[in-house]
Design a binder for these strands. Sequence first.
RNA 1: GCGGGUGUAGCUCAGUGGUAGAGCGUCACGUUGCCAACGUGAAAGUCGACGGUUCGAAUCCGUUCACCCGCUCCA
Length: 527
Amino acid sequence: MSEAGASPAVNQSAKGVKPMDAIMALCKRRGFIYQASEIYGGINGFWDYGPLGAQLKKNLRDAWWEDMIMRPCWGRKGPNGREVVCVPVETCIIQHPKVWEASGHVAGFNDPMVDCKETKGRYRYDHVMVFVPESGNPGDKPVFAYVGDQPSEAKQKKKAEKTFGSITSVALSSLPKPWDRVIAPDAEKPGSLTEPRMFNLMFDTIPGAIRDEANRAYLRPETAQGVFVQAKNVWDTTRVRVPFGIGNTGRSFRNEVTPRNFTFRSREFEQAELEFFCHPDESQDWYRFWRDFRMEWWKSIGLAGDNLILREHDKDELSHYSCGTSDVEYRFPFTAPGFGELEGIAHRGCFDLTQHQAHSKVKMEYNDTERGELLPNGSRRGERYVPHCIEPAAGLDRGALALICEAYTRDESRPSPEFMKFHPRVAPIKAAVFPLVNKDGMPEMAEKLHTELHNRFWRLGAVEMDEKQSIGKRYARMDEAGCPYCFTIDGDSLKDQTVTVRDRDSGQQSRMSVDRVKAFLEEKLGA
RNA sequence: GCGGGUGUAGCUCAGUGGUAGAGCGUCACGUUGCCAACGUGAAAGUCGACGGUUCGAAUCCGUUCACCCGCUCCA
């Protein structure tokens, strides 16, 4: 999952932006999100979920698991005309350090690095050399940076000789800053190199009782690599056939330079990633398939308005190995009028498996017995290849935050102006039961209904009973928690066994037989 | 990383050197017959933390932590 950040405004004014302060206050007040270690003053970049937030996030995670692993894409067929097959794994936060060397994450961890703003290249500071005129004085002409033994060396040398004639090379570190006349290795314009910086983007730790630097390991910065290093085991041991997906969810850790924007950029966060493996020839079809489905999925759980967009990366934004990447982006109050990434869907080609094959010396080729030459006996010879991979990688904390922001609604005309309009599927409290008045047999009948509903729906979320204070306050409390349906037992209920159901969003009430309540909720909750 | 702002009860905030406050929420009792109703009462804060000045600090000074906003950054 990349970090594209907010994209530019697209014809949207900032008006109608919800107040982030009020959303954060509600999150605290109602127990959605607390600051981590709050009693000690908090810790930068870490957040905890309270009871409602934990259930909300669980519902989001469950929805992902159900719709991506258990019944992928709601049972629809993939571009190959067959049902989509996905299996789960659960891999460790700490992997062998070589995993992160192969993935490219470790590069630049221990050494000062310079970045190129133009090409997005990153170089070890002490590896960057510069061609300068032999006289030592380039005047107002640019000088040419390169990295030894890289293609950039010959290219830059040619340009430098054309500019200065006889040249010599010096270390970048010997040049005075700012380097506004330095043309970076693969860049066109001068001045694109940043100051050298130490990057400490992965958290590290030292497994083993004796503290020994040689044992240094890292907390994973993404769950995806756990899938790649086990992909061969999965296709060797589980009878899954390409094309198929492997899902992995869990915590990841990044030492973000600037944690910001509530939980949006946290140092500890949870991902839900799918790596979908397919034949190279089919990869473009699968890429489009997953991109479109993931957008549709986020809409289905309540991000249905124009605050959600699918943004295809420009060519110059793509990683060098990717031939397509899209982001599902949400217009958060703090990114408006721009957007922030919820999920990246990347065509990763065979980059990751090839990298691990090279570093581990373990063949990552898949033997596809549905392909290859047809033999006289009717079977196939089989085709061996490194599968290509489509990666829909979602951030669950960002997803939960988007659900919260989208749900937050203020309507001054309502008795309870502030309420959370969660989609029933993700709402942490699914239903509540109230005795209109706490006497005359109403509490007993309410308790009976509450028990019945709880026994039926506890797997999905809370079913609450509230008999305290006035009926209006109880409705308001449930509105703020985002509970979609409240059932009230009144005097008539005891006579004719009916109850009223109140719809959170409209405030409308209707009466139904108490026997029908369970079926009503089953339908509304899709249970 | 730079600049600005904020930090006092669960939430929103008042309190500029002399007894720690309000509204809302929460809880209890009573009342209450469908939308944050009413009455009475209660609980709840080492004033972000540490240090300094002072007879005395929520208040002044220094340091620090956290959050928000704008730049920067985001392998």
